[in-house]
Amino acid sequence: MIADRLLTTILTRVDSGARLIVIGGAATMVAVVSAQVVMRYVFNGSFDWADEVSRIAFVWTTFLAIPLGIREGAHVGITLLVNKLPAGLRGAISRLMNLLAAGMLLVVFWTSIAVAAATWSERLGAVNMTSSVFFIPVILSAAHGALHLINLALHPLPHRPAEAMA
């Protein structure tokens, strides 16, 4: 089906972009924090902007990695009861939960847009940047994660019992 292929193509491309940003964010955190440690302990000084830049990189890295975990089914799930149900019912519950979670992420998406818009004029102290820079990855992650959850509702991952995941 065309819509199915379109969703898969969009998710593949967005996943690739998110993966690159996550790698860049992690590299930024390591570089900035390492440079800050060297500046403090070797040169007895520091960069004013290091804390904010590393915090921004941390938030972007964390939130943009969440949908990549959703895609793989890597997030924590409590399946004690669900594992005891018949396969058909397990699949139906999985689809329903994925759709409910996608709906919740869409609420987070819209709410984050409103908060980012409301705080857009606020500036960070050490870097001349809007404080909404912390909400942008939440917006992107919520939309990206919702798309993955919708895709999982349409095409669930194969069931893996808890013993197989340990």
Rank of each mutant, 00 (worst) to 15 (best):
A27C: 00
A31Y: 01
V32W: 02
V32N: 04
V33L: 07
V33Y: 00
A35Q: 01
Q36H: 00
Q36K: 03
V37Q: 05
V38C: 03
V38Y: 07
M39E: 04
R40L: 12
R40G: 01
Y41C: 01
F43I: 08
F43N: 10
G45L: 11
F47P: 05
D48N: 14
I56F: 13
F58I: 07
T62Y: 14
F63M: 15
L64E: 09
L64V: 05
A65L: 08
I66K: 01
I66S: 00
I66D: 04
P67H: 08
P67C: 13
P67V: 08
P67G: 05
L68E: 02
G69L: 14
G69V: 06
I70G: 12
R71D: 08
A74V: 12
H75P: 15
H75D: 11
V76F: 15
V76D: 13
V76Y: 13
V76W: 12
I78Y: 06
I78E: 09
L81S: 11
V82W: 03
V82P: 12
L85F: 08
P86V: 11
G88C: 09
G91W: 05
G91T: 05
A92R: 15
A92E: 14
R95Y: 14
R95F: 10
L99D: 11
L99K: 10
L99F: 15
L100M: 13
L100Q: 08
A101G: 15
G103N: 02
V108P: 00
I113R: 04
A114P: 03
A116L: 03
A117V: 06
A118F: 10
R123H: 15
V127Y: 06
V127T: 07
N128D: 13
M129I: 13
T130A: 06
T130C: 10
S131F: 12
S132A: 13
S132R: 04
S132L: 01
F134A: 10
P137M: 12
V138Y: 01
V138K: 02
A142D: 02
A142S: 05
H144V: 02
